[in-house]
Amino acid sequence: MPGPDLLSSQGLRLDGRRPNELRRIRCKLGVFAQPDGSAYLEQGNTKVLAAVYGPHQASKSKSLQDGVVVNCQYSMATFSTGERKNHPRGDRKSQEMSMHLRQALTAAIKTELYPRSQIDIYVEVLQADGGAYCASVNAATLALIDAGIPLRAYACACSASMAWRNGQPEPLLDVGHVEEAAGGVVLTVASLPSTGSIGLIEMSHRLHMDYFDVVLSRAMQGCKDIEVILDRAVREHLAEGWTKQDVVVI
């Protein structure tokens, strides 16, 4: 299990982060005018655009009596990876990602407020460098907020992995592509940090029970850290938007 050395003897990761540090996150709300809500998010070199339409009337076949239908579409730009991608959307992997996105976001949206309605969420990965799913969830949350859709809490996603230092297990937060490719376990968690509930949890390899708790708690801690960053971005955006609106109206 102790794969290649993901942690140096000084306790730094390959890219210079410490085990409990996130990658640099930069984000912006309201990047497009056409959709009801949109957001752009960078997590290290992973870059994601999200757009939200709705809520609007659901088509007959899909509509639900007791809540809103959340429709997600995940796609990766052909130029998002090192080698050109041929199927930007609709392949198995994208379909699976779409399903997972829906699961995490449905948990956050107050679905009961919009019966017989539909919300469309489109996520486009512009550059993939590990943790594309996490970045997608975080960007979609921002886009939903931008669209003004009521949420129970921020939905944040973060991944964690396992490394060893001096024979001691040390979980790594926010796994990048290099660390993912090293072959260790990657635990992805989408949660509502303020309530502590988990919307989705997925693990890529086998991990011994003894270490599961430490890895999970590190991933949950990461979600909390991301929530702080997203919350700050939302507040800045709103403050900025408020003044702009004033200028236009007066």
Partner: peptide, 11 residues
């Protein structure tokens, strides 16, 4: 020949 872009954090 693939271009690899890696992050490198300076502390």
């Amino acid at each position: 020949i693939i271009k690899i872009v890696r992050e490198h954090y300076l502390r």
